[in-house]
């Protein structure tokens, strides 16, 4: 049977994760369809980063499962999803080589991966720095390079773990614009953030996590206008930080 040409919806089914006997996530279930970005918000320690890592496959769930509807739409060895970390690790190579690295892993021929890497750098405004060493870039430039590196794979789903948390406001705005652009180009963005303003600007749907549980999953407009869960309402009022 031929795989469907989309890997969505992405389902979490009774997802749980415990580390050293302490439950970090409990019984989280939802489905993500293609469309505008899904923002995962919640107070510190809610389990947002762990949820992203479970979905991305970096951590094995201790309960439940992550189910994708199919393989990557491009087929082959290209991954269906990619992730950008709060503090991305830059390889000790040039900017261009960083962007091309995952394409090399995916087995693309050299000319093709350089073409795609350059295009990705262009979309994040780093084409002028292609030959510079990546680890010499500023924090904001490194985060933009991480976005280029992930989006060069043309993933159907892009996970972002607080990509602006370590950046100054100007760099954060630049990153946010790039994220919006990536979403507009058709990738499903799944992103955690501490910045409610950013969540309002980007979100198509919101998942509200609190103490390892998913308390609310709603369209963004409805969530921000009228949160159903009392904890979510308190969080939006700025009264719930833990």
């Amino acid at each position: 049977m031929r795989a469907p040409d989309t890997c969505l919806p992405l389902r979490a089914e009774g997802l749980g994760y415990a580390a050293n006997g302490v439950a970090v996530l409990r019984d989280v279930s939802f489905a993500l369809e293609s469309g505008p970005p899904a923002l995962i918000i919640g107070p510190n320690g809610a389990g947002k980063s762990v949820l992203l890592r479970l979905l991305h496959g970096l951590l094995p769930p201790t309960a439940g499962a992550v189910r994708w509807a199919g393989e990557n739409r491009g087929g082959g060895r290209m991954p269906r999803d990619a992730m950008v970390f709060q503090r991305p690790v830059m390889l000790r190579r040039s900017v261009l080589a960083n962007a091309a690295y995952p394409l090399k892993l995916a087995g693309l021929p050299r000319a093709e991966r350089l073409r795609r890497a350059r295009a990705a750098l262009g979309r994040v405004g780093l084409d002028g720095l292609a030959d510079r060493p990546a680890r010499r870039l500023s924090g904001g430039e490194q985060q933009r390079l991480a976005l280029a590196r992930a989006s060069a794979l043309d993933p159907e789903v892009l996970f972002l773990d607080e990509p602006c948390a370590s950046l100054d406001p100007a760099a954060a705005r630049a990153v946010e614009a790039i994220v919006a652009d990536i979403a507009a180009r058709g990738a499903k963005v799944v992103m955690t953030t501490q910045d409610l303003g950013q969540a309002r600007r980007l979100a198509g749907e919101v998942l509200f996590l609190h103490r390892g549980r998913l308390l609310e999953h709603a369209p963004a407009a409805a969530f921000f206008a009228d949160p159903k869960a009392p904890e979510a309402a308190a969080f939006l009022r700025g009264e719930l930080v833990w």
């Binding site: 060895r77 390889l91 000790r92 690295y101 995952p102 892993l105 590196r149």
Partner: peptide, 25 residues
């Protein structure tokens, strides 16, 4: 430093060997 990032980009331990050798040059 690299492990999680490389796994995310699609490199398991085996593919990481040449990467580490080059980046550790």
């Amino acid at each position: 430093e690299y492990a999680e990032q490389l796994r995310s980009l699609g490199a398991g331990p085996r593919r990481a060997v040449p990467t580490l050798l080059w980046d550790g040059r």
